[in-house]
Design a protein around this nucleic acid. Structure first.
Length: 585
RNA sequence: GCGUCCGUAGCUCAGCUGGAUAGAGCGGCGGACUUCGAAUCCGUAGGUCGCAGGUUCGAGUCCUGCCGGACGCGCCA
């Protein structure tokens, strides 16, 4: 859409400069920008960088190129017009042509508007969430899930074949800790008896362990002993482990359902942790790794600006890294991918550098296609979330609070009778607000979550976008009811050229390019930001310009077409960032 | 100590490959509901882009140093 015009103008500029200088120019030497203010037009070409080639001042170049392009008469033909503004060449696009383009394009592509084929035939595996089975999900997981889900949708929108995978960390010392505390203090209570979700019950005993361990020096040793029993497949320990894991996984799945998180394949660490061993031992045979006298196996990465790392303990057991090596190899076998994206917090940067390098040394050529999307931490105003200090923001609690807030809001506004299913709507507003909040910042940055202030339903929020969509939907329903009144009207793009409308048209037209950029940069926040800008413009426009209250049927029909276009972009864009579209709210 | 990342308005965040007067939301102050949904809209105050140099016609953006913060450097995950 917008890209089409950008491409064409780039070409025009390139040819003009080449003719002027008699030398070929590479396409990326043509700098194209979006002007900072509307009076400078829709596209801008700064002339500074051509000063050396053409041996003229930027201002002179602008004039020269302007005359040359003018003579070649590429203008007209719906291309828009050119203007010299000091050292810039500014393009003013033909509003009618772009608007007509947009409306027909949306009409033709329907739900697919914004999709592209850039990643067609590319298989991408996306790993995210990766919970432990010793505690419930918290806000950090929610950010991880939001990014993982959104990214998967964005990549699919670019026609990639995407496989969403989860890895459940269901073994290890931390799991044994909650098991141990439960065995000591739990009195065989089931989640039903305790009136708790399974993951919360297990999590409570993890906290219980830490409390107990404070004045019990032998606690850690006892946990280690239990881990050993687990590895030796002690029936009693295994039975307890299976029971508690089931509770935890069940509870976690419930949270996933509530937040709309889904996976195509789920791996369990308890089933993959042994796989890495064989791979490492083969590497040892090939002398890629080396053994110490105590029997431990190491890799020396000091020539790659990394350290020496242990791959197998002296007792032959696996580590986190070993497990990840095995899981990666297994996954490639299961589903040969062209790219693999690990959505994991940035505190694990080093781990992934090492992992990718080790896989590379082992000769897996797909190691180059592994990517760690290192997203930032979610912190609280007083600092890091700490489970031991009880400062973690629990996912279920947060969601429940948000639903209450939404429900209160609906009652205060007296909207209950208007909405078909208030309970469901509250849920959708709640996780719309949550997902938008989590995806409005760039993934790689740390964010600060203030429980009192962060989640709001006004301003730059998910519900604001939902509200914009609901109002447009409401108006479109009214239009349908009164359709006969406007039956003589027809679409006239030239009626939609007011500056407010033009901004909206440009933003809707840029949407496909934004989807492309979000996929390339693995950054869903580009979409949330763009939808917000477009909604803001539309809200103002909607306030100032009557749509249905017009005598001129042509104008009504045309403005309705624009409303439909905005709605379509909102529907699609919101889906990509996990914010439910609402007809009513 | 070494490594990685980050410092933009009171707070939370934008700022595309360096480009024209650094933008939003929240909060503050002041306005707008007999008209398409006021979860909205409009106006206003608020910035030496951590500090100091450098590169450049041009730096919030690139380089160096310093100050401040986060994370990592386990035979933990």
């Amino acid at each position: 859409m917008m890209d089409k015009y950008k491409r064409m103008w780039r070409k025009i500029l390139k040819e003009a400069i080449e003719k002027e200088s008699n030398a070929p120019l590479s396409p990326d030497e043509i700098i194209l920008e979006i002007p900072p203010r509307p009076e400078f037009g829709d596209l801008a070409f700064p002339m500074f960088s051509y000063a050396k080639i053409l041996k003229k001042s930027p201002k002179e170049i602008a004039v020269t190129l302007f005359k040359r392009i003018k003579r070649s008469e590429v203008e007209g033909k719906s291309m828009g017009r050119l203007q010299v503004t000091g050292p810039y060449l500014n393009v003013y696009l033909d509003r009618t042509a772009v608007t007509a383009d947009l409306l027909t394009s949306i009409e033709e592509s329907k739900e697919d508007y914004g999709n592209n084929n850039n990643l067609s035939g590319i298989r991408i595996m996306v790993e995210f969430s990766c919970p432990n089975t010793n505690k419930p999900l918290h806000l950090g997981h929610l950010r991880n899930d939001a990014i993982g889900m959104s990214l998967s949708r964005i990549l699919k929108a670019c026609s990639a074949e995407v496989l969403r995978v989860n890895l459940i960390n269901d073994r290890g010392i931390h799991i044994c800790k909650s098991m141990l505390a439960y065995r000591k203090f739990g009195q065989n209570t089931s989640p039903e008896q305790a009136g708790l979700k399974g993951d919360h019950l297990v999590g409570d005993y993890y906290i219980r362990f830490n409390d107990w361990a404070k004045d019990e020096p032998g606690a850690e040793a006892e946990a280690r002993k239990m881990l050993k029993s687990w590895e030796e497949a002690d029936p009693e320990v295994r039975e307890l482990w299976e029971k508690m894991n089931k509770w935890a996984v069940h509870g976690i799945n419930e949270t996933y359902r509530k937040t709309g998180v889904e996976f195509d394949r789920v791996y369990f660490e308890s089933k993959t942790y042994l796989l890495g061993r064989d791979v490492v031992l083969k590497g040892l045979e090939k002398k890629i790794f080396y053994g110490e006298e105590d029997g431990s196996v190491w890799v020396d990465l000091s020539s790659f600006d990394l350290d020496k790392k242990v791959l197998l303990r002296s007792d032959g057991t696996s580590l986190y890294l070993t497990q990840d090596i095995g899981t990666a190899v297994q996954r490639y076998k299961d589903w040969p991918f062209d790219r693999m994206i690990y959505v994991v917090a940035n505190e694990q940067r080093y781990h992934f550098k090492v992992l990718f390098k080790v896989l590379d040394l082992l000769g897996y050529n797909w190691a180059f296609n592994l990517h760690h999307l290192a997203y930032g931490m979610v912190n609280l105003p007083e600092g890091k979330m700490k489970s031991r200090e009880g400062t973690v923001v629990d996912a279920d609690d947060l969601l429940a609070d948000l639903e209450d807030l939404a429900s209160k809001e609906i009652r205060e506004k007296g909207r209950e009778s208007e909405i078909d299913n208030p309970g469901d709507t509250c849920k959708k507003i709640a996780f719309g607000a949550l997902n938008y909040y989590l995806l409005q910042a760039s993934p790689y940055r740390d964010i600060i979550f203030n429980p009192q202030e962060s989640i709001s339903f006004s301003g730059n929020t998910g519900p604001y976008l939902q509200y914009t969509g609901a109002r447009i939907s409401s108006m479109l329903r009214k239009f349908e009811q009164r359709k006969m009144e406007f039956k003589h009207g027809s679409l006239h793009p030239e009626l939609l050229t007011a500056s407010d409308e033009w901004e909206i048209v440009k933003q809707a037209s840029s949407f496909p390019g934004i989807v492309t950029a979000a996929a390339e940069e693995l950054n869903p926040s580009l979409i949330s930001g763009h939808l917000y800008e477009m909604s803001k413009n539309y809200s103002r426009y909607y306030h100032d310009y009557p749509v249905l209250h017009n005598k001129d049927s042509n104008l009504v029909v045309s403005r309705i077409a624009l409303a439909k276009a905005v709605r379509r972009v909102l529907q699609h864009g919101l889906r990509l960032i996990g914010v439910p579209f609402l007809e009513k709210m």
